[in-house]
């Protein structure tokens, strides 16, 4: 069943702050095999002009995707999450995410489209720090594949 177009433009309440931990950044950097010292060595990060270790560019996805869960699981929207694949992902950074950040996300449905039986959902996540400053915006496109026989 087609998703309800009236949801386009809808925003969800800000998430509870996510506190970015130094060791979580290290764990993520190790998992992607990236030895850039800006992720693990505060002095190296400072030498580049950052107040503390920074996170790899895609680290914030774990936070924005969890926030977008409010959208995907909204029973009124009615997305069949079992058929969903990740179509596109984009980030625009005001500054890198860094250790000690307390980040909140506001998720907004930017677009809902139907193509060849697939439902395409675009969600924008605006990420702000504790001071209310914008840090990064994440755009996630999900595609719910048509049900077989539909």
């Amino acid at each position: 069943m087609a998703l309800d177009q009236s949801f386009v433009g809808r925003s969800y309440p800000p998430t509870v702050p996510y506190e970015v931990g130094r060791e979580k950044i290290r764990e993520f950097a190790e998992a992607i095999g990236d030895t850039n010292p800006a992720y693990t060595d505060a002095e190296a990060a400072k030498a580049l002009g950052h107040p503390d270790v920074i996170a790899p560019p895609t680290f914030v996805f774990a936070i924005t995707f969890k926030a977008a869960g409010q959208v995907f699981t909204d029973p009124q929207l009615g997305l069949d999450y079992s058929r969903v694949v990740h179509g596109d992902q984009k980030f625009a950074y005001r500054r890198p995410v860094r250790a000690g950040d307390r980040l909140t996300v506001v998720s907004t449905i930017e677009a809902i489209k139907s193509m060849a039986g697939n439902e395409i959902l675009d969600v924008r996540g605006e990420v702000h720090d504790e001071a209310g400053e914008h840090v990064v915006t994440a755009w996630t496109k999900l595609v719910a594949r048509a049900a077989e026989g539909a």
């Binding site: 850039n36 992720y39 790899p56 895609t58 992902q89 950074y93």
Partner: peptide
């Protein structure tokens, strides 16, 4: 890109299609 520039904080935008 980040190994080329050295500072990962220099990335302003990044997008892909899977």
């Amino acid at each position: 890109v980040t190994d080329w520039v050295g500072d990962p904080g220099a990335v302003v935008e990044y997008g892909v299609r899977f």
